[in-house]
């Protein structure tokens, strides 16, 4: 009896396998697809490499309040703040982040920083190809994450890291 039962189980299992063989393919054509994303598709809510947003005047939204760093469970955000002056204005408020580093060796993409941000300055983009053989290159600086200056004032799209990297979007 046991033998028969086992054979039945295998037959049941293999039937699913064989059935799937004749179904249409669900796999995306990554990395051979077209465009900067190479065929990868994302849900909007996907949490990829961070993008530091700018406001409608092209100024950085980040005011260096350190709340993202405080909320970060893996302690991967490093900020140095500095004061805006009339001659050198970087953000809309009194203070801006002179240094803003995220260490992607440590980041777990939990999104707490985005939740914590009082000015919606930090958001998750869709960048995902960050694997590297060089760990020191995984500490991203502000310049690597900052959204480009808007080509036309008023637009404040959420930029895609990969698109930005490929130079398809945004004009500096």
């Amino acid at each position: 009896m046991t033998v028969l039962k086992n054979i039945a189980a295998i037959a049941k299992g293999m039937s699913i396998t064989f059935m799937e063989m004749f179904q249409p393919t669900q796999v995306e054509n990554y990395p051979d697809g077209p465009g900067p994303l190479k065929g990868a598709k994302f849900q909007d809510r996907f949490r990829g490499v961070h993008v530091l947003q700018r406001d409608e005047n092209g100024l950085e939204k980040c005011v260096a309040c350190f709340l993202c760093a405080a909320s970060c469970p893996s302690n991967c955000i490093y900020i140095e703040a500095a004061e805006n002056t009339a001659e050198h204005r970087v953000s809309g408020a009194e203070r801006y982040a002179r240094v803003y580093n995220i260490d992607y060796n440590r980041c777990i993409f939990c999104g707490y920083c985005v939740e914590a941000c009082p000015t919606d300055a930090i958001t998750h983009g869709h960048g995902f190809e960050i694997a590297s053989f060089n760990a020191s290159g995984l500490v991203y600086r502000k310049e690597q994450m900052l959204a480009p200056q808007p080509a036309h004032m008023g637009a404040n799209a959420v930029f895609n890291h990969a698109e930005v990297a490929s130079g398809e979007l945004g004009v500096r």
Binding site: A81, E83, R95
Partner: peptide, 9 residues
């Protein structure tokens, strides 16, 4: 101390 950092840092 102006705008240097935050107390919990």
């Amino acid at each position: 101390y102006r705008y240097k950092t935050r107390p919990w840092e």
